[in-house]
Design a protein around this nucleic acid. Structure first.
Lengths: 150, 150
DNA sequence: TTAAATACTTGCAAATTGCAAGTAAAAAGG
DNA sequence: CCTTTTTACTTGCAATTTGCAAGTATTTAA
């Protein structure tokens, strides 16, 4: 049973990874998977700094810096110095960036709806509750695999 | 609620990705994440061909070919022509490769046990059942994100 | 018995990576 | 106040990883 645990998660995680990959190519601007994750995080965090997003994604800051540059170049992201601490760069999505992020999000949710459409309401609630529980416990067990910002 | 669905999965998937990453570095030979996934799949499939594993992982076959070469070089994997069709290369783990894979697996399971240790037996069963259900339904919905070998 | 398909490998050139070493701004210490 | 240290980020560079195009070898189809 324990053995199956990792396998279960591995399969799910891979499938979800494929979904992410497919959606960032089909969805909007034909951006890379890494870029898609960056857009997602910028949208979900409240005026995050470079550090914060890089940390969340577990990316080296130098690599991240360059990825952001490329996103700025294609006009999906902007970077502005924090007025209270000018070392810090605050990231946000441009109107176009928001569009792309939303497009990806819609596609993913459409697929996920499809996945859930074969479940009963009870099952759906169970699954959601389960993953919530999983996330909560993974955060608690900070022994491993949690960047400070989780 | 729908919006939270993707977020839920995104967070879980990322955490599990970090676990995989950490474990392949701590676990055995300081191999890369990609290599860790390859070892895992070779172990779990029954005498797979190059194509099969590459397909499962969603990797381009040329990239995969080179990754396998590097794993052969460090003596974790062997490649043998299929006697029934000599175009096909059958992959298997060396004794050392099995050791590394097992090491990684133990570390991951130890972490996962830890995560589950704060749950009741009922909760644990629910979570397992949920992810099984999720996997089953994701496979069924082949619209997207499933390589032929899933 | 020749043509087409399959399984894989190599040549390249582009993209991605991370460490080391930089700049610039803020915080801490004296 | 002025110097030192720390923090946030950027660039140089060299190594790795990537995928397309074009190859070889073997098998299947015609």
């Amino acid at each position: 049973m324990e053995q199956n645990l990792r396998e279960l998660f591995q399969v799910f995680s891979r499938r979800f990874g494929f979904l992410n990959k497919d959606c960032c190519q089909a969805g909007g601007h034909d951006i890379s998977l890494v870029q898609s994750h960056i857009l997602y995080e910028i949208e979900h965090q409240h005026y995050p700094s470079m550090q914060q997003v890089a940390e969340t994604l577990g990316t080296d800051i130098t690599t991240f810096s360059r990825q952001v540059q490329s996103l700025i170049k294609i006009n999906l992201v902007t970077k502005a110095p924090d007025p209270k601490d000018r070392r810090i760069s605050i990231l946000s999505l441009t109107k176009e960036g928001k569009g792309v992020a939303e497009n990806i999000d819609q596609q993913m949710n459409q697929y996920l709806d499809d996945v859930f459409s074969n479940m009963s309401q009870k099952e759906k609630e169970m699954v959601i509750h389960s993953v919530q529980l999983l996330n909560k416990n993974m955060q608690k067990t900070s022994k491993c695999c949690t960047t400070p910002l989780g």
